[in-house]
Design a protein around this nucleic acid. Structure first.
Lengths: 254, 254
DNA sequence: GGTAGTGGTTGATCCATATCAATTTTGGTC
DNA sequence: GACCAAAATTGATATGGATCAACCACTACC
């Protein structure tokens, strides 16, 4: 999944010309195209988008894509691997605010204030397409379907944030964990990958922080779901055995 | 605050020509202009925006602006009064997902799927400017600063949603209530109103649902804050006596 | 002005999850 | 393959807020 690119540019954060890293990949032949921005664009428009997208930028585990407080310049489409966003607290400690998988856009947190409100790091070896936001908005003015597409993607971020909020305010620990597993499964499936087998790229601590529960509770809940036969668990490998049962669990009243 | 408009159009949901209700108000002389979309537009652009905005639509307490599941057609700028958005659960019960005050945009939940994911009702006598979304996006293509402004407003919705999520996952009941009071105060202040005195337009049940705590806990926390002298409380009237102390409370580690 | 309904407060008890603590497993490195 | 740090699991205890219950305040309506 993450092994088809060299790593020559690790740590290099500005790429003078596009495609230094993997010159053959363009938006039009990217297999994520239908998840990412290019959907609904015709081939000429995709080429226009292509000219502003900066590829490459492979990151290793723990490498930072952008930092809380940094000036907002670009949004990033995840190409491979995965990322987490998190916020630091004044008194120490942090809160994971989101996980980002291939085809998803990270960095929208900076649009409103032109400053990133969260930090984002790679959870494994990962790569992104950097989309300079100013040039992107200019292009959006010329391509109505691109503007429309991006409005929709931002809208999606809003509604999914609200879903997480619902999860956090009314659901039990068990329901939260189940909901996360289902969400990861669904997002896997969108990429034509197995809906039932997945590898958690994040630690239990990340999961707990994201779901507002402790590591211990995450661990206990996973053990319980495993004992009940709803999932099979081997470290970070998860197999969802009873998808429907998990869904019902999430739907139940808390 | 909500008494300077007649109520002749209550219940009328389509307004053939703009300004039937209060013909004298336009975006350019609206005192909310600097909070709402028109900011950063020149006078010609504001007039263009004006032509697509449909005013009027005063709603009484409990009147629905749009319903969960309804087709998404427009976003709404709150002109006066206040609204709550909420989601219904399958097994009964509901979850308040947001409160909207004058100058704020409600309805963005429908942008991604073209279907509203929440219902929105007036918490008191209120009025909105209806902005048909299709025409709005078309206009945005012609007015870069309008597109930019709206990207920013959506970005703001995303970051504020994330703030609420942080609140819900790591803060105590006391901190949640304090944070809501501060948020309402800040939003009051933006409208050049008192930062220290405000009237809660929502019930304790709404507050509890929004913050993920029970009515009883809301009540107890408010009583406690009142006893501690941080606020004064008379029914729904709140006076914030020690703004800084409240802020420190929110910042504290849970 | 009595009554019903809605919203709000306060008290007593209980439980889901946090916290504290100990142990095991894993992965990386010399 | 021994050692170490980080991650994960499991158990025992503590607690914040939910739940259950009783009561009060206000408004509306006959």
């Amino acid at each position: 999944m993450t092994d088809d690119r060299s790593t020559e540019l690790i740590g290099t954060y500005s790429i003078p010309q596009r495609c230094q890293h993997n010159p053959t990949v363009t938006c039009s032949d990217c297999r994520l195209g239908e998840l990412c921005l290019p959907i609904a664009l015709d081939s000429i428009e995709i080429n226009q988008l292509d000219t502003i997208v900066q590829r490459g930028k492979p990151l290793q585990i723990g490498d930072e894509l952008f930092h809380e407080g940094a000036t907002f310049n670009a949004i990033y489409a995840v190409r491979s691997g995965s990322f987490k966003s998190y916020k630091l607290f004044a008194g120490g400690g942090s809160q994971v605010t989101g996980f980002y998988l291939p085809g998803e856009i990270v960095g929208m947190d900076g649009i409103s204030s032109l400053t990133h409100t969260v930090s984002t790091v790679a959870l494994e070896t990962s790569s992104v397409c950097e989309i300079p936001f100013k040039r992107f908005t200019e292009l959006s003015l010329k391509i109505p379907s691109l503007q429309n597409r991006f409005f929709r993607m931002m809208g999606k971020e809003i509604t999914s944030d609200q879903q997480v909020r619902t999860l956090l305010s009314v659901k039990t620990a068990e329901q939260r964990v189940a909901a996360l597993l289902l969400s990861l499964s669904t997002r896997h499936q969108r990429r034509k990958l197995s809906a039932t087998r997945l590898r958690l790229p994040m630690t239990r601590a990340d999961i707990g922080s994201y779901l507002g529960i402790t590591i211990e509770t995450v661990s206990r809940v996973l053990s319980k779901l495993s004992k009940q036969g709803l999932i099979k668990l081997d470290q970070r490998e998860v197999e969802i055995c009873k998808f429907n049962a998990l869904q019902e669990l999430v739907m139940e009243k808390p």
